[in-house]
């Protein structure tokens, strides 16, 4: 309990500190360059020039320390040995491409990259299109969206229970195997079947992300002007044609947004793999492999190199996003 009080206390101190900084710095600015007297006009201009930097200051500092500095430090570390002191050139990179487990992780990540965004977007679009047509659509949406609030590790437990496997002579308590047994098939140990186990892990992420895709795409579908749809109806298009030939092309931009957002998430997927298999049985992915080298391998150089590979994979999306922003402005 003391801890929570400590947390509350910290929160208050931090908020007061932030307020103190912003108010204080603004007050000092006003004292140095008063907005009255002989130089009033020049002073106001000077204030206006300095103030943006006061506003941005803490954010720039935090972003630099927590996100920008680490990129450069990681590049540095990737050229050094396990403790980060001895320069070893590109040895880490050479090790990487020859490492079996890395190749496995990379291939798995690529599989995730194709399947998860595609399936989430597909189900999201399906859910968005269908729920918009019925009276209880909002309740349905809420329920499909719900997994979004559940932690990856919580979701992993939920699904581990679904996939639970027991020997043939015992009653199955995992629903998936129970259904199989009900229809006369043999129960399967899903989590330890190479290649397929990755798919079963992906299902967890698809389950979580479909709600996100649905929310974005549903808003996009609603944004399509009524006249377009009415015109199409008058021309005798059936609902399926309207959906595929008129609605889907119009929301292409939102589909791209959903796709890229989920892509980024997939590249960083970690908790699910760690909780379900910890990379065994051929299901390793980059983020978990990086974690492995960091905490079990204690090799900062190799670990940083793997992190850089993730960064490299994210880069195209980053560039695309920044470009979009430019075009927008």
């Amino acid at each position: 309990m003391e801890q929570v009080l400590l947390a509350l206390f910290t929160m208050v101190v931090a908020v007061l500190g932030c307020m103190g900084y912003f108010w204080g710095s603004n007050w000092i600015l006003a004292v140095i360059y008063p907005a009255n007297g002989v130089n009033a006009a020049a002073n106001i201009q000077k204030c206006a020039a300095i103030r943006p930097w006061l506003f941005m200051g803490p954010a720039i500092l935090l972003l630099s320390v927590y996100l920008i500095y680490p990129v450069f430090n990681s590049i540095y570390l990737s050229l050094h040995g396990s403790s980060g002191e001895k320069f070893i050139g590109f040895a880490n990179y050479i090790w990487l491409v020859n490492d079996e487990k890395f190749v496995e992780s990379f291939i798995n990540n690529m599989m995730w990259l194709v399947i998860v965004p595609a399936a989430s977007t597909f189900f999201g679009l399906l859910a968005a299109a269908l729920t918009d047509r019925i009276s209880w659509g909002n309740i349905a949406k809420s329920l499909i969206f719900m997994p979004m609030a559940i932690s990856f590790i919580g979701a992993s437990i939920i699904w581990k229970f679904v996939y639970d496997f027991r020997g043939e002579d015992v009653e199955q308590i995992g629903i998936l195997n129970a259904i199989l047994v009900h229809f006369g098939a043999e129960p399967q140990a899903w989590i330890v079947m190479p290649v397929w186990n990755s798919v079963f892990l992906m299902i967890i992420l698809i389950w979580i992300q479909t709600g996100f895709a649905m929310v974005i795409l549903s808003a996009a579908l609603r944004g399509i002007p009524e006249e377009t749809l009415e015109a199409a109806t008058l021309d005798g298009a059936n609902p399926l044609q309207i959906f595929l030939q008129i609605k889907v092309p119009q929301i292409w931009g939102s589909v791209a947004v959903v796709w890229t957002t989920i892509t980024i998430l997939v590249l960083k997927v970690f908790d699910i793999v760690m909780a379900m298999t910890n990379g065994q049985w051929g299901s390793q992915v980059l983020a978990n492999y990086m974690f492995d080298w960091m905490f079990r391998g204690h090799d900062f150089g190799r670990s940083a190199t793997i992190a850089l590979v993730i960064m490299l994979l994210v880069l195209p999306v980053m560039i695309w996003n920044v470009r979009n922003l430019r075009n927008e402005n």
Partner: peptide, 26 residues
């Protein structure tokens, strides 16, 4: 201003994995 905004958008997708080791050391 434009550069800072682009930076923020760029940083949106930087994987956390990048930051773990440097910050741990720091």
């Amino acid at each position: 201003r434009a550069i800072f905004l682009a930076m923020v958008v760029g940083l949106l997708v930087v994987p956390l994995q990048m930051s773990l080791i440097p910050l741990l050391k720091l």
